[in-house]
Design a protein around this nucleic acid. Structure first.
Lengths: 215, 215
DNA sequence: TCATCAAGTCAGCACGTGCTTACATCGAGG
DNA sequence: CCTCGATGTAAGCACGTGCTGACTTGATGA
């Protein structure tokens, strides 16, 4: 009936990593509903955009009352910020990259699978000026952070002015990735939307290598 | 004072190609205000998204009353459709392409300059599900039409099943283009947003050639 | 001069949105 | 058993939105 069978030792309502499911949230567990709200929100924001997403939708997805969003996240914008933070964390805590080619392969996998599973990349393609000043700032910061990470893997160094070109190329790689994810998810544009992963992998590999790993 | 000094021979309010300016629309010229509304609308839709742009904004940009939008285009969706049709026309009536490399160079120019001038590409990046069912359909059709045009220049033929891969690669090229335009315009993400055209041209050329003109 | 009709304006309705306040319900400790 | 705080709910306010109908303005022709 309830999922707090494992003793939630963390008395203060914080992280308290527990079960990852939120479908059977039948109880009064604040942290569980918080996480469920963030999950549902991220999915909505990614597919419908910031403005188009309504807090009532999100609450309905989770199955709780709308007022909880304001209770836990103060505002819609606060919820969005929580989504961004979670996404940023997920991208951060991935296994450290080895070679640039390996990074490319992993990026390809993200692009191909983003529509299916609950991929952090999805939220990044929330590029459009969302109408909200603060939300835009958060989004831009996350994106630029991600750029630097990818560029570093490709040989960019913050101190070396000669490597600025690498930074630019890394961002072009991100632009490409986001463009493909977008065409596959939001807009159901054929044939890319229904293309299999195998069909996409080779062209994407060529493009990303041209940008990031010029042999 | 007025711009209908040239005798508008077309009695019925249709096309009547006249001056292309709409800033000094001081008179009672229906077709001029229609065009002005479409222009302003397209810019707003492209930068703010469909849902986020309000008809009051558009009307205010042009300097007319909101009700005119409903008079001329029935609804906000009707205005959007008019924008899409105009964009489709502009893309259609471009000079016929010669070699694929030439097409690539022209596409690069579009990408680089899209943020500045009133480029038709801008509206295409209205990919996100706009919340409006019909608007989505129109957008998707335009995009797929554009894909086929580009693919044809790269050697794709509707009858040849072996050339389907070309269609997919063409769409990946479009995805890349849209991704870059988006990062440069909507999201002001550095460094791509402030990069000069010269810096962008070479990497873009490499990517597009890999996708469309594999030597 | 003045009737006529298209071009444009104005006030307002109906509805969806984010958010708030007051209330209900569950679980635990005295 | 009963109180009390935390979790969740219900009703509603204020506002922005798309759209509508009645009205005004200006050019044109008899």
């Amino acid at each position: 009936m309830s999922n707090e069978t494992q003793t939630s030792t963390a008395g203060l309502g914080e992280a308290a990593v527990g079960a990852d499911d939120e479908l059977i949230r039948s109880g009064r567990d604040a942290t569980a509903t918080r996480r469920a709200l963030v999950r549902a929100a991220r999915r909505r924001f990614a597919t419908d955009g910031y403005r188009a997403t309504t807090v009532r939708q999100i609450a309905s997805d989770v199955g709780v009352n709308v007022a909880l969003i304001n209770r836990y996240f103060v505002s819609k914008e606060g919820l969005f910020e929580a989504c961004m933070l979670r996404t940023s964390d997920e991208l951060e805590t991935q296994a450290p990259s080895k070679s640039i080619k390996e990074v490319i392969e992993r990026l390809i996998e993200h692009i191909v699978n983003a529509p299916d599973r609950d991929d952090p990349l999805q939220l990044l393609l929330l590029l459009r000026s969302s109408g909200d000043e603060n939300a835009d700032l958060i989004r831009r910061r996350t994106l630029e952070h991600f750029t630097r990470r990818l560029a570093a893997a490709a040989g960019w160094s913050p101190d070396d002015p000669d490597s600025e070109a690498i930074l630019l190329r890394a961002q072009l790689a991100i632009a490409t990735s986001l463009g493909v994810v977008m065409l596959r998810t939001s807009a159901a544009v054929q044939p890319v939307a229904s293309a299999s992963g195998d069909e996409l992998t080779e062209p994407l590999r060529q493009v990303l290598r041209v940008l990031l790993a010029p042999a």
